[in-house]
Amino acid sequence: MATNASAGHFLGIDGMARADLEEILELTTTFAEIGRRPIPKVPALRGRTVATVFFENSTRTRMSFETAARRLSADTIALSAGGSSLSKGESLRDTIEVVTSYGADALVVRHPMAGTAHRVAAWTDAAVINAGDGCHEHPTQALLDCYTLRERRGALDGMRIAIVGDIRHSRVARSDVLAFTALGAEVVLVAPATLLPPAVVGWPVTVAHELDLVLSDLDAVYLLRIQHERITEGLIPSIREYANDFSLTPERANRLPTDALILHPGPTNLGVEISAAAAADSRSVILDQVVNGVSVRMAILFLLLGSNRNLTGGAVEGDR
């Protein structure tokens, strides 16, 4: 099978229609089933190569992309910024060209600068998947969050979901707001004013500054990590003061409705945005999110590499 000459990309939730999101989420069920087989592997992407090109640290995203690729029988190659020639001064573009020269059919790109994945997509024939670009988007995280919520609730329509914490620096929050609202949920952002993005005015959300006031009326609460590495100025007085007002403590968890779900994209800073007890609460679906991450990424890899589909448009001519 020939490599796609003009592969589709998966760069962000922005611009995706509800039907596109639903199609991916429905297909994810098929791949979730493969994960439960005695041999969780199908030959769908045999002979294809998926490169993970990460210029930032990652546990879940990288491992789940690699697991997803291997479950589809694709080969994986990995580049980490720290151990690469980037530290010798090689440019991003040259690095991408080298990775593509090794035969990568898909590039899974994470970079601290917003827009990097879009940039890379313009340089290469390989399919580019955005695995997080700065404070911009993290679209596969949003898909796995939606899948996790749908798995428990059937649909997001009418759900009231609070996203709590460092929204300003969170690409997860941006992608989640777009995906949750596209699927019919109502989103409340809960954060101190300094941790909200300046442009929140145009977002299809409501804003609250006190977690305690919204707790009792939620279907799901999504906690975000305080991103110390991106906070360069004094946006919060101290971690302790932040935790006092915004941490999901066992007491606050008790005030959630009995069927509310607790989500977190990981990694968790236990005791800061969520307590160990709340993370282990029976309503917590944090580990489901990790498991579903593999299934969602299998669906994305398959749609881009195995089905000659472009995720932002119709069918691409089959290579016969």
């Binding site: 099978m1 429905e26 297909l27 069920t29 098929t30 089933e33 493969i34 199908v42 030959p43 769908a44 589809l72 398959f302 195995g306 089905s307 000659n308 089959g318 290579d319 016969r320």
Partner: peptide, 16 residues
């Protein structure tokens, strides 16, 4: 997902 003509025929979620 086991076919040799993958991409030519669709994978449909109803086919469990």
């Amino acid at each position: 997902l086991h076919r040799d003509d993958i991409g030519i025929r669709p994978v449909v979620p109803e086919a469990v």
